[in-house]
C-alpha cells in the first residue's frame, strides 16, 4: 500500500492519477496533505501539481466519457467526503480499462458512488441557489453568508453572475472561510476578515442600507401570509428547508 499526499485541489488530484500510472503504484491511498497521518506500514509518495500531467489525464478522460460525466467527477470531488479521491481513482481506472464509456455502468461500485455523490453535491448547489439571502450594505454591496454542506461556491458562481449582472455581490462560505465576489465584470475568490461587531450577522444596521430592514420585514410578512394554517405540515416544511439553513434565512427569524 502506498499513501499519496497532494495539495487538495482537483487539478492536484488529476496529477496524482497520472502518477499512479507513471510509477505503477498498486494499492494506493490518496490523502490531502494537511490531513495526512504517516503510517509505518505504508510507503509514502508526495505528489506535486504538474500542469502537463493534469492536462493529459483530463484530455484522456474527455475522449472516453461525456461532458456531464466529467462534471460529475468534479462535483463528486467537491463533496470533500473522506476517501472520495480513492473512489474517483477507481472510477478513472475503470474508464481507462474499458473500450466503451462506462459512465452508466451503475452496477460498478465506484461508478454508482461517484454518480450518487455528485447528485448530493448538485442538490446542495441547488439549495444554495435557493437559500442564499443577500443583504444590501450602505455602500451598495449585496452580501450573503452561508455554510453549505459541500464546497459548492465554484459551482454556483455562474448562476449568480448570469442572474445578478448589474449589482455587486459577495457570497461568503464561513465554514470554509472564503467567498466569491462579483465586481460587475468578473467573479473572483476572496478572503474577508470580519470585525467582531458584524461577524455573526448581528448589529447589521451598522453597515446595511437604510431600506434593508424594511425589505426583510416585508419578506417575513409575506412568508407568514402565504401560509395556509389549515394545511400545516411541519414535517414536509423541515424536509424541504432543513433547520441547519435557518440561521441565514430572514423569514425564519422572529420579528
Amino acid at each position: 500500500m502506498t499513501a499519496i499526499t497532494y495539495d487538495g485541489t482537483f487539478e492536484g488530484w488529476l496529477t496524482v492519477v497520472f502518477e499512479v500510472y507513471e510509477y505503477k503504484f498498486g494499492d494506493v491511498e490518496i490523502c490531502k496533505k494537511d490531513r495526512f497521518q504517516a503510517n509505518v506500514f505504508n510507503k509514502h509518495h508526495e505528489s506535486y501539481f504538474d500542469q502537463q500531467k493534469t492536462t493529459r489525464v483530463w484530455k484522456g478522460l474527455t475522449q472516453k466519457i461525456s461532458a456531464p460525466a466529467l462534471s460529475g467527477l468534479y462535483q463528486a470531488f467537491l463533496s470533500e467526503e473522506k476517501g472520495i479521491e480513492n473512489v474517483l481513482l477507481r472510477y478513472v481506472q475503470h474508464v481507462f480499462g474499458s473500450k466503451q464509456s462506462i459512465e452508466r455502468d451503475y452496477s460498478n461500485a465506484a461508478v454508482l458512488t461517484v454518480v450518487q455523490t455528485a447528485k448530493k453535491v448538485y442538490r446542495e448547489k441547488h439549495r444554495m441557489e435557493a437559500f442564499v439571502r443577500f443583504q444590501l450594505t450602505a455602500d451598495n454591496l449585496y452580501y450573503a453568508i452561508c455554510q453549505p454542506d459541500f464546497n459548492v461556491l465554484p459551482l454556483i458562481q455562474k448562476h449568480f453572475k448570469d442572474r445578478y449582472a448589474d449589482q455587486r455581490w459577495l457570497i461568503y462560505d464561513s465554514s470554509r472561510n472564503y467567498g466569491i465576489y462579483y465586481n460587475l465584470s468578473v467573479v473572483e475568490n476572496v478572503i474577508v476578515s470580519f470585525n467582531e461587531q458584524t461577524s455573526k450577522g448581528k448589529n447589521i444596521e451598522v453597515i446595511t442600507d437604510e431600506k434593508e430592514e424594511l425589505y426583510q420585514r416585508l419578506w417575513q410578512q409575506y412568508f407568514s401570509s402565504v401560509n395556509i394554517a389549515a394545511r400545516r405540515n411541519t414535517k414536509l416544511h423541515i424536509q424541504h428547508m432543513p433547520k441547519r439553513y435557518w440561521k441565514f434565512l430572514p423569514e425564519k427569524q422572529s420579528f
Binding site: 448589474d166 401560509n227 395556509i228 405540515n233 416544511h237 424536509q239 424541504h240
Partner: peptide, 26 residues
C-alpha cells in the same frame, strides 16, 4: 436570458426559495 447586463433570468429548472409551514414551495 439576462440581456445587456440587466437584472435576472428565468432558466429551465426553476427554484423554490422557501417553503411555507404547510410545506408548499415559495
Amino acid at each position: 436570458r439576462n440581456e445587456d447586463k440587466g437584472l435576472g433570468n428565468a432558466k429551465g429548472e426553476g427554484i423554490c426559495h422557501a417553503y411555507t409551514e404547510d410545506g408548499r414551495c415559495v
